[in-house]
Design a protein around this nucleic acid. Structure first.
Lengths: 248, 248
DNA sequence: TTTCTGCAATTGTCAGACAATTAAATTTCA
DNA sequence: TGAAATTTAATTGTCTGACAATTGCAGAAA
């Protein structure tokens, strides 16, 4: 590792960037141990708190893990799909809420991207994935379910649909699109009739996937998209009526 | 803000999580100033270095920004689409390289997701976006271009295609899928004939989008996907021949 | 009124210390 | 000898206190 520190930013940010570059460029490989904190102090000519701030920055991105004790230290972390999902979801939720993205926009993105999964899902869906979808459908048709739980189940259904495509990269890319819509959906009140309609469409999707009929799945999904957008418009109208309703 | 610290993790991680929760839940809003470091020390009953490590974790995720001086401090940051793009791309590249994701898998994901943009792009593409695509096509047909620059231009073309859908959420979600493939594509040697084919398909895509013909665009995109996968198979075969070729 | 100066608040960095944890080396004991 | 217990050394986690650098603001000076 070679490093050149530039006066503009904070030292800890520069050190973190230097190490991050090493990881991305490949000179630091998974499970490799970084020098100890005191060694890093010498290499970068800074104090230990500064080195530690740099390491915490990297830890926040799951790029390293640390271990105490004799043979401890900081190790380059293999970024797992699970960790990446989590980061993706957190970032997506914050991005949508902080930039006042409309339900329509988020919805359009989600359904467009989900449509991309359908062809693959129809070919590859496993019995387990179908079962997961059916389980959520069953949950959604329980009468006493709160709106919040209904939304959560809806998200779980769509996640199972995405996973059915059998491409982990797609599952990762779509994690944000699928999950980040939940806070927005939570502003909707789902009447019994609305739920019934959604459950029916979900059932048709599961059936079409089970029959490995991609075209049919796409068409039902389009219907579900249209229906969801309709709900969104109702919500938007209600919000407009209430004038200054609290923003998300 | 209320906090309960639990002995299991590091203090700085717990403090960071408490603040992160506040942001996600909405009790901390954009541009709001956090208490000063010394105030946070009192609130959480920890020392300043610990508080600072927590703040650096949040800064690494672009959740806060800090400013020195009299009226300085840490402020909740509005997560911009640009910042989110960057995080998304970094995470995607690392995820793919560290988990030895095959070119086929990444390619399948990218083209499937891009297909989702096409219908919208055909409707909404602006003259600027078309011009950007044509500019990249022109660049790709320059004879002296290095393979690396050709790949970079290819990525830029696809980014323009995604942006043409006119949905910033989709652009964000696809940033990773489009960009993270570049390191993988860089292992391909693009002969003049291969480039010619790709440039031709790109031109057809741009033409179809200009004509607002979504169906035609989709079909050319499918052809491009098939062609790219073909290249990937050649590379995989070559790598197999070379037995222990250096992994990415 | 405008400009300058100094003050106070705040983050950035440093130095040194001690606590907690852990693996390995060492000793002890059967 | 072999296994268990103990010590040791390395390393991260946290604390204390200090000083430097930056910046807005109030008050002084022109």
């Amino acid at each position: 590792m070679k490093y050149e520190l530039d006066q503009a930013q904070e030292l800890s940010a520069q050190i973190a960037q230097a190490i991050r570059d090493g990881i991305m460029e490949g000179s630091l490989i998974v499970d490799q141990r970084l020098p100890s904190e005191s060694d890093l102090c010498e290499q970068f000519q800074v104090s230990r708190p500064t080195v530690r701030e740099a390491l915490k920055r990297l830890a926040a991105q799951n790029l390293i893990r640390t271990q105490r004790g004799a043979s401890g230290g900081a190790f380059i972390n293999r970024l797992s799909f699970e960790d990446a999902y989590g980061q993706q979801i957190t970032t997506s939720i914050l991005l949508l809420s902080m930039n006042a993205v409309s339900f329509e926009t988020a919805c359009e993105a989600r359904f467009a991207l989900e449509r991309a999964c359908v062809a693959l899902a129809a070919r590859r869906r496993t019995p387990d994935q179908l079962a997961a979808m059916r389980a959520e459908i069953h949950r959604q048709s329980q009468p006493g379910l709160s709106d919040e739980s209904f939304c959560a189940s809806d998200v779980a259904f769509h996640r199972a649909l995405v996973d059915a495509a059998g491409n982990p990269v797609m599952s990762y890319q779509l994690a944000g699109a699928v999950e980040a819509i939940e806070p927005l959906m939570n502003m909707i009140t789902f009447t019994a009739r609305k739920r019934e309609k959604i459950v029916e469409l979900h059932t048709q999707i599961a059936d079409a996937l089970e029959a490995q009929d991609g075209a049919a799945t796409e068409s039902v999904l389009a219907e579900l998209a249209a229906h969801t957008l309709e709900l969104a418009r109702e919500v938007a109208a209600m919000r407009k009526n209430k004038a200054q309703a609290p923003q998300l």
